[in-house]
Amino acid sequence: MDTPYGSASLPVWERPEPQPRAAAVTLSRARIADTAILLADEHGLDGLSVRKIAKELGVGPMRLYDYVATMSELLDLMVDAVYAEIAEVDPPVVWRDAVLHIVHRTREAALAHEWFADLLGARPHLGPHALAVGEATAAALSRAPAVHSVNDLQRSLGALNAFMVGALRREVTERRTARATGTDVSAWQAAQGPYLTRMLATGRYPTVARLVVGGTHLDAGETFHHNLTTIVDGVTA
Rank of each mutant, 00 (worst) to 15 (best):
A69N: 13
A69I: 10
A69S: 14
A69E: 15
T70E: 08
T70A: 07
T70Y: 05
M71D: 12
M71P: 02
M71Y: 13
S72Q: 14
S72T: 14
E73T: 01
E73K: 04
E73D: 11
E73I: 07
L74T: 08
L74Q: 02
L74G: 02
L74W: 01
L74F: 01
L75R: 14
L75N: 13
L75D: 11
L75E: 15
D76L: 04
D76Y: 01
D76G: 10
D76S: 12
D76F: 00
D76V: 08
L77N: 05
L77V: 00
L77Q: 04
L77I: 03
M78S: 00
M78P: 00
M78I: 02
M78R: 05
M78D: 05
V79P: 02
V79Q: 04
V79K: 06
D80L: 04
D80C: 03
A81M: 07
A81K: 09
A81C: 04
A81Y: 04
A81H: 09
A81Q: 11
V82K: 10
V82E: 10
Y83T: 05
Y83D: 00
Y83P: 05
Y83L: 02
Y83A: 06
A84E: 10
A84V: 07
A84W: 07
A84G: 08
A84C: 03
A84Q: 09
E85P: 03
I86H: 00
I86N: 01
I86A: 09
A87P: 04
A87R: 11
A87H: 11
A87Q: 10
A87T: 08
A87C: 09
A87S: 12
E88V: 14
E88H: 14
V89G: 03
V89S: 09
V89T: 15
V89W: 06
V89N: 08
V89L: 11
V89C: 09
D90M: 13
P91T: 09
P91V: 02
P91S: 07
P91H: 05
P91D: 08
P91C: 09
P91K: 00
P91R: 01
P91Q: 06
P92S: 08
P92Y: 00
V93S: 14
V93K: 12
V94P: 11
V94L: 14
W95K: 02
W95P: 06
W95M: 06
R96D: 15
R96V: 13
R96Q: 15
R96A: 14
R96Y: 14
D97W: 00
D97H: 07
D97C: 00
D97F: 06
A98G: 07
A98F: 02
A98W: 03
A98L: 02
A98N: 05
A98K: 01
